[in-house]
Amino acid sequence: MPDALIEIFISIFLLIGGAFALIGSIGLARLPDLFTRLHGPTKATTLGVGGILIASVLHFSSRAEGLSLHELLVTLFLFATAPVSAYLIACAALHLRTPAPEDHRRLDRTGGEE
């Protein structure tokens, strides 16, 4: 492939990645309570960093030294661990009985098994 085309692909992945990482953090800062805040970082930030890592794979593979795939390992690791972190944080919050807004009153009906 010509270099210019690869550069366009790398730029697209970088921009998508940066945008999603930013959206994840906006969610973290903006949403009203802990459980809604969990959604931003687990999904958007993980995909954002994944996009930047794919850009890195493309960039280093397009150079002379040949294929460079080890960034995929970080992507894989992040996708495997982000839900575990979210699950544990949610568990900790349920354990501490984090005050939830009115929308979450149902929790007392569904989640009180401790």
Binding site: A21, G24, S25, L28, L34, R37, L38, G40, P41, T45, T46, V49, L78, A82, S85, I89, A90, A92, A93, L96, T98, P99
Partner: peptide, 15 residues
């Protein structure tokens, strides 16, 4: 709350 701060730290590590 404390879980909020843990979540913020986790996101900072990823970023």
């Amino acid at each position: 709350t404390l879980p909020d701060r843990i979540l913020a730290l986790d996101t900072m590590a990823i970023n």
